[in-house]
């Protein structure tokens, strides 16, 4: 059995007296891909943000390879160097070329020699099909290209775990797959990941395990084929149902199959 990379124990988080996370626990093993789904406002993004210290948790513990990383204020950047994170809004640095975006972390935070990182960056850009954009400014890229760049930027830090927070939510529909294919490629390469997404088909394709979060608690946990086809809880069933639309000609069972299944 592979080592546990991330351990979240009974985490609570509240904003202005309102509980967003109410005792969440989970473990992620090395090389495992865990997808977190749930209705908006259920706390999935907050959970990811708590893991790398963008939010401070109210109680509970978070460990990265047996090192407690929650509740510290000192040297938080050292923790974040080991945790990659990509957001839905890409957040490339607009004043830097793609390459400078990629080099900033490795050369400044990790003090690696520039030439090494640049070589590695070019290889990674080639793998995601962006070699010709290496010296372009971010504003000249499409949304999909920006998001692939953001993924490379996170990967160049060689993180222990990668957190993806609805990385396709801001993309035009035709660009979604070019980004998700990169993620699937990373998963095949053995990258440990925690993914929050609304793309159910992608979730099923990439996940080793699915967590269903609602009202700040994990309601259901299981293998993707079980969760998506035979959800145990009624809440999860209703959530998955919400991806179907009513139709002019009666309910469209078919649409839902298309969305979720094969």
């Amino acid at each position: 059995m592979a080592d546990t990379i991330l351990r979240v124990e009974n985490v609570y988080k509240s904003f202005d007296g309102q509980d967003v996370l109410r005792g969440v626990s989970l473990q992620i093993r090395e090389g495992e891909v865990v997808v977190i789904v749930g209705p908006s406002g259920c706390g999935k993004s907050t959970l990811l943000r708590c893991i790398n210290g963008l939010e401070t948790i109210s109680s509970g513990n978070i460990f990265l390879r047996d090192e407690k990383i929650s509740g510290r204020t000192k040297d938080l950047h050292l923790v974040r160097q080991k945790i990659g994170m990509v957001f839905q809004s890409y957040d490339l640095f607009p004043h830097m070329k793609v390459m400078d975006n990629l080099l900033l972390g490795p050369t400044r935070a990790l003090s690696r020699p520039r030439a090494d990182v640049e070589k590695e960056a070019l290889e990674m850009l080639e793998r995601v099909g962006l070699k010709d954009k290496a010296y372009a400014l971010p504003r000249t890229l499409s949304g999909g290209q920006k998001q692939r760049t953001a993924l490379v930027r996170a990967m160049l830090m060689h993180p222990e775990i990668l957190l993806l927070d609805e990385i396709t939510a801001a993309l035009d529909p035709e660009m979604v797959s070019e980004v998700l294919n990169v993620v699937i490629d990373l998963a095949r390469g053995g990258m440990t990941m925690a993914i929050v997404t609304h793309e159910m088909r992608f979730a099923e394709a990439v996940a080793d395990r699915v967590l269903f979060l609602e009202d700040g608690v994990v309601l259901e946990e299981g293998k993707p084929e079980e969760f998506f086809h035979t959800p145990k809880t009624e809440r999860a069933q209703r959530f998955l149902q919400s991806f179907t639309y009513a139709s002019k000609r009666g309910t469209s069972e078919k649409q839902s199959k298309n969305n979720l299944g094969d």
Binding site: R80, S89, L104, A154
Partner: peptide, 23 residues
């Protein structure tokens, strides 16, 4: 400066000073 930029800088492991200076 967008808050998301500040967070993105923090997420690649920059210290507060580095984040201020470069991002």
């Amino acid at each position: 400066v967008d808050r998301a930029q500040v967070e993105a800088g923090a997420c690649i492991g920059l210290t507060a000073g580095q984040n201020m200076r470069y991002v």
